[in-house]
């Protein structure tokens, strides 16, 4: 079944003008998001995954700047919208869940006030209706005695509870897309499991699309439908989850998967990726992973960043991988 594309991102570039030079955080990424889909964006710190998330909502402050690209939400280009129209999208149609629940909740307002504010602002609810709905939402995200909790301040709640409140606020306006930026990184594993479970169930019921940004490849592999792998501001590989995990094409993705210790496997030493990600101030031409890659050839020095098809629903920028695959297929044939 071909699902409707709800978000289409084309050639998105977000740069930061710092006094040391231009930081090319996101360097021309293309992707789309379908209705009801969970899309995982994976990468190490500095890969540009969070900036991508922020850019989608145009939440980039100076010295940052979205240089070019288009972000089409149901056919409308968000980049061409004025701020007044953007407010109607941001937080209403597309909402965001941040990493640190303490920093994303207002410490001087009760959680009830913060929920009611969203309902009044985006859905024009009357105060009483908003209040009832807020209690409902808190109940839905699994907070016990929600009526009493409405009057509590964020510091009176535990980390897991706070993140539940943030999820409730994100869902309050019944958005079509949720961008979750490392929503469980600050939480313990058992609490992480609770929140992930909650998000999965709520999203399935409403056919909401979710962009899940994380550095945890294992976590993403358990919930996502498709995965994008980012490295130094580029998407280097994307495709269906099964294909990426079982058959990674790009040497970086392979390295990432191999460097995770697996619970039911006995390994003596972990495979490691040598070296570090290049500085975003001074990105090399050609393949940015070249300096760390064990399969590099002369061709990698000035190759383009185009995607090559690995299989149905699986694309990678590494031509070497593509070459290898072709040889294999030829061999089999």
């Amino acid at each position: 079944m071909q699902r409707e594309k709800i978000l289409e991102v084309k050639n998105l570039k977000t740069f930061f003008n710092t006094k040391d030079g231009v930081v090319k955080a996101v360097n021309g990424v293309n992707f789309n998001l379908k209705k009801g889909e969970i899309l995982g964006i994976v990468g190490e710190s500095g890969a540009g995954k969070s900036v991508t998330g922020f850019s989608l909502l145009r939440l980039i402050d100076p010295p940052g700047e979205i240089l070019e690209g288009s972000i089409k939400f149901k056919g409308q280009d968000l980049m061409k919208m004025n701020e007044r129209d953007m407010i109607k999208i941001r937080g209403k149609k597309i909402s965001m869940i941040f990493q640190d629940p303490m920093a994303s909740l207002n410490p001087v307002l009760t959680i009830g006030q913060q929920l009611i504010e969203v309902l009044q602002f985006h859905l024009n609810y009357r105060r009483k209706k908003a209040k009832n709905r807020a209690v409902e939402l808190l109940n839905m995200v699994g907070i016990s005695s929600p009526g009493k909790r409405m009057k509590h301040y964020p510091n009176q709640l535990s980390g897991g509870m706070r993140q539940r409140v943030v999820v409730a606020i994100a869902l309050a306006s019944d958005p079509e897309v949720i961008i979750a930026d490392e929503p469980t990184t600050a939480l313990d594993v058992t609490i992480q499991a609770q929140i992930i479970n909650l998000m999965q169930n709520l999203i399935k019921d409403r056919q909401t699309s979710l962009i899940f940004i994380t550095h945890d490849l294992a976590l993403v592999s358990e919930i996502a439908d498709r995965i994008l792998v980012m490295y130094a501001g580029d998407i280097i590989e994307y495709g269906s989850k099964g294909s990426i995990i079982s058959n990674p094409a790009h040497p970086y993705t392979q390295g990432l998967i191999n460097s995770i210790p697996v619970l039911d496997k006995n390994q003596k030493r972990l495979k490691q990726i040598k070296g570090l990600m290049p500085s975003p101030l001074d990105l090399p031409a050609g393949c940015k992973f070249r300096s760390r890659c064990s399969k590099k050839t002369d061709y990698c020095k000035n190759r383009d960043n185009e995607f090559k098809k690995i299989s149905n629903n699986h694309y990678s920028t590494c031509s070497e991988a593509c070459q290898l695959k072709k040889e294999l297929i030829a061999g089999v044939g």
Partner: peptide, 8 residues
């Protein structure tokens, strides 16, 4: 604990 898998 999340584990690397191909199934959701």
């Amino acid at each position: 604990i999340p584990e690397l898998t191909t199934t959701t």
